[in-house]
Design a binder for these strands. Structure first.
Length: 859
RNA sequence: GGGCGGCUAGCUCAGUGGGAGAGCGCUUGCUUCACACGCAAGAGGUCAUUGGUUCAAACCCAAUGCCGCCCACCA
């Protein structure tokens, strides 16, 4: 905006109620249209950067995303106001497995498959889906009010990002950290791909534990226990614990595998639990992670007993080609028939499922791409120990470190159609070329004919590069220089190991610095009944419903109040509604002040120096207290403290007391009252803007003298100068008197204003006048026979009594309090050991209570 | 199996060593010219249980119970 023009025409007439729908889209369009979201890498301001966690592009945003967006945007807006050049970079993630599943489900409904469709048509489907869902997600982020730099929108599959991913792969490969090897992996027979440990969802199954007898050569036998008897077809050994006396004599001998006849060495291995089952373990190195390790330690043969689709791979046996579960039944039946099955027990245990398609995971041996993690891990641990990344709350760091320390090599390959293809090429003479771009000719044989490795990369491999790939890496861009490292990353704790840890590792490796200084772990929102919020359970809440019902500001204020206050929170819609009422309250407070006649220009503090009114001094002092709490809350990532302080100040102090106290002055066009009121509103709106951007921008634009956007106004500074303990003390007296008079009136059954009050000459005249005005009683000089007050030396009387019932109650309460306080003061240990100021404080309280009791005595 | 968090008013939650709080709900009274999306006055709590530390515990420590989550290769 070059010219000084009002953003909205100053309207003196405001509707009685605040309507979020009427203003939100308009403000968002103006902010964006005037380029307020765009970051300038050449700015000489200090930089503040956040790369928004790319949501999975699998559908709509859920409540957790919306909450996270609110937190991010609060920080972005606060930092802009605090003088930073802020980059808030948006994007979304291709979510390979998840998206492929979504598309495959669609195809299944249409009666077709991706194989029938072919690669090319499948890719088209995927791209159409990305376009559609990407637009939905962006729209939702806008509805929340996210001030993201849309000119820098990134997608993990866009061509530049693709190149970053290839570059990272090649760099790791050249470093010697990427290798291909057969290992036991979590295999999803449905997706026909390996998945990582972190992509497994555990479900409780009620199964049967089968006890099977294996004959030992040279006489005797050994009984093993298993829940997956079909895997015995691939057994290549039997293991017992070396310290297990029961089996010591068997170690070194050979057992015979029932139904198959294979000879199985009996070995001793520490990995075997003596207490479980019979203490003897059938070893199936091809289909169980523990067995695989035992097999490696003892040089046992590996038999691959299963195909990629989960069917049995046991040529020559009757079970060949059967699905695993069918084979299980047949194997059990045959074992029973031949007398090998000695016992069956019901058994409840956890079974791994693919967290995308929910099929049972089958561990099997597969040739995969691996990334060595040892050095990456060590650097990350060092960075953590050097406190280069700060965690909020601090305890989250443990989750991260525990996982890191036990980290093994990462299976980065996936056997999917969707994702970043591994940049490994094989020429017709089987030479391997690894390069970012497809090679022209083989270095070794000069062949020009290549096939690319069919695998794609784990989605998290690409996400791990997010904080620098989005800024242009590997190119040396202005953005990368200006904005890396970023400042804050805010996520749910379930994603700490999947994503946060990997960004830290890649950031340290490729950029030589941590990707962000602060990690902020926000709460998880549960359904109202404490269950997980999920679409499939029907417990999900669509954030768009909340946004349209209560407005983005109310939603965001709610998010601010819960995000960091606890680990989990049950969703309570009435609290969102409470903040909608709060927005309405702000609206009406502004209406009141704006209706004041006169030409106040809301002059800044200079004119407030000579303030004579107690209420003016008091509210400014309270403003300074609120300013401190709100600012500290944001700085310390304890956002609930900020919103609570702002809410309390606005409603319980500014509206309930100050505006009530100055109503008449405002009506008369009193310039001092207007200045103070405008000053309070102005600063309140600034401080609430990061949390409630729309309503504050709208109201601020209506204040006299406002020309620019509130969004780029400065955060209030040094309001401490208004601290005024004297005014606070006097106003506290006013409040005490007013509340007591109101209580007496109610008890007297008087429903209207009116009544008389006498206050002793020892009460400050200003206090007396203000209290009388706010309590709606007439201040008189003589009030013989009326009932005494406790809050101040004085009496009160109403047309039909003085509220004596209430007076009695008050006396009772005071006496109880006094008894408690005196008991404590009478304790010698307390007087001796408690800090003097605590004792003094209690003494003072006792004196105050005695004084109040004395006043209540009739005289 | 290991770890983390929670248990405070009817509901959802603040409160981290010295006087039990908010929002919503409830009761009563008010359409007083900012707001009935409001104002005023109320009712309602052995702060999960037990033990310990302390002059003093909702708060610190230990154990227990229940709820939720994360991690984990006992077949």
């Amino acid at each position: 905006m070059d010219e000084a023009r009002p953003i909205t025409e100053t309207q003196t007439e405001m509707p009685k109620a605040f309507d979020p729908q009427a203003i939100e889209a308009g403000w968002y369009a103006r902010w964006e249209g005037d380029g307020l979201f765009i970051a300038d890498p050449t700015s000489d301001r200090p930089k503040f950067t956040m790369c928004f966690p790319p949501p999975n592009i699998t559908g709509e945003l859920h409540l957790g995303h919306a909450l996270q967006t609110a937190v991010y945007d609060l920080l972005a807006r606060y930092k802009r106001m605090a003088g930073y050049e802020v980059l808030f970079l948006p994007g979304y993630d291709h979510a390979a497995i998840a998206t492929q599943n979504v598309i495959e489900k669609q195809l299944a409904r249409e009666g077709t498959t991706k194989e029938q469709l072919g690669r090319e048509a499948f890719d088209e489907r995927v791209n159409a889906w990305y376009a559609q869902v990407g637009a939905t997600i962006i729209n939702q982020l806008r509805l929340v009010g996210a001030s993201m730099d849309w000119t820098r929108l990134r997608f993990t599959m866009d061509s530049r990002y693709y190149r970053s991913v290839m570059t990272a792969f090649v760099a790791f490969y050249d470093q010697g950290w990427i290798y291909r090897a057969p290992r036991i992996v979590n295999w999803c027979p449905h997706d026909r791909s390996a998945i990582s440990d972190l992509e497994i969802e555990w479900q409780e199954h009620q199964d049967t534990l089968y006890f099977i007898n294996y004959q030992v050569e040279g006489g005797g036998d050994v009984t093993i226990a298993t829940v997956r008897p079909e895997t015995m077809l691939a057994d290549t050994g039997v293991a017992v614990n070396p310290n297990d006396e029961r089996y010591r004599h068997l170690v070194g001998k050979t057992a015979t595998l029932p139904l198959v006849g294979r000879k199985l060495p009996i070995v001793a291995d520490e990995g075997v639990e003596k207490e479980f089952g019979t203490g003897a373990l059938k070893v199936t190195p091809g289909h169980d992670p523990l067995d695989y390790e035992i097999g490696q330690r003892h040089g046992l043969e590996i038999v691959n007993g299963m195909h990629e689709d989960g069917s049995m791979n046991v040529p020559g046996l009757p079970y060949d080609g059967m699905p695993a579960l069918e084979a299980r039944e047949r194997v059990v039946e045959d074992l029973r028939k031949e007398g090998f099955l000695v016992k069956e027990e019901p058994y409840t245990h956890q079974v791994g499922h693919c967290d995308r398609c929910h099929y049972v995971i089958e561990p099997l041996i597969s040739e995969q791409w691996w990334l060595k993690m040892a050095e990456l891990r060590d650097r990350a641990v060092e960075a953590s120990e050097a406190d280069r990344v700060r965690w909020h709350p601090e305890r989250s760091e443990r989750t991260y470190l525990d996982w890191l320390r036990g980290l093994r090599d990462w299976n980065i390959g996936r056997q999917l159609w969707l994702g970043h293809r591994v940049p490994v090429y094989y020429c017709e003479n089987k030479h391997t070329v690894v390069s970012v771009d497809p090679p022209d000719e083989c270095h070794e044989c000069h062949s020009k004919s290549f096939t690319q490795d069919p695998d794609v990369l784990d989605t998290w491999f690409s996400s791990a590069l997010w904080p620098f790939a989005t800024l242009g890496w590997p190119d040396d861009t202005d953005d990368l220089r200006a904005f890396y490292p970023t400042d804050v990353n805010c996520t749910a704790r379930e994603i700490i190991n999947l994503w946060v840890s990997r960004m830290i590792m890649t950031g340290l490796y490729f950029m030589g610095d941590v990707p962000f200084r602060d990690v902020v772990i926000h709460c998880i929102v549960q359904a109202a009944d404490g269950r997980r919020m999920s679409k499939s359970l029907g417990t999900g809440v669509d954030p768009r419903d909340l946004l349209s019902k209560y407005g983005a500001d109310a939603f965001r204020a709610w998010a601010t109040s819960v995000a960091m206050s606890t680990q989990d929170v049950r969703f309570d819609e009435t609290r969102v509604e409470g903040y909608r009422r709060f927005a309405n309250k702000l609206w009406n407070a502004t209406r009141l002040v704006l209706s004041s006649p006169g030409e106040s220009t809301a002059e800044p503090p200079g004119t407030l120096e000579a303030r004579e009114h107690l209420e003016d001094r008091w509210i400014l002092s309270r403003l300074s207290v609120a300013w401190r709490a709100i600012t500290d809350g944001i700085e310390q990532f304890m956002f609930q403290d900020s919103i609570n302080a702002a809410y309390g100040f606005a409603w319980n102090e500014l509206c309930d007391w100050y505006l009530e106290a100055v109503k008449e002055r405002l009506r008369e066009g009193d310039a001092a009252a207007q200045d103070v009121a405008y000053f309070c509103l102005d600063n309140l709106f600034r401080m609430l803007h990061p949390c409630m951007p729309f309503v504050t921008e709208e109201l601020w634009s209506r204040l006299p003298g406002s020309r620019d956007y509130l969004m780029r106004a400065r955060w209030p500074e040094l309001l401490d100068r208004f601290a005024d303990p004297g005014a606070e003390e006097q106003f506290a007296e006013v409040i005490a008197i007013v509340e007591e008079v109101r209580g007496r009136r109610q008890a007297a059954g008087v429903t209207k204003r009116g009544g008389q009050m006498l206050l002793d000459g020892s009460v400050d005249g200003t206090v007396a006048a203000l209290a009388a005005r706010l309590a709606h009683v007439e201040l008189v000089d003589d009030l013989d026979g009326a009932t005494p007050l406790a809050a101040a030396p004085g009496r009160v009387r109403f047309p039909s009594g003085a509220g004596d019932a209430r007076r009695e109650k008050e006396r009772e309460r005071l006496e109880n309090d006094l008894a408690k306080v005196e008991a404590k003061l009478g304790n010698a240990d307390f007087r001796e050991k408690a800090p003097p100021e605590v004792v003094a404080n209690l003494e003072e309280r006792a004196t105050g209570i005695r004084l109040a009791l004395e006043r209540l005595q009739d005289h």
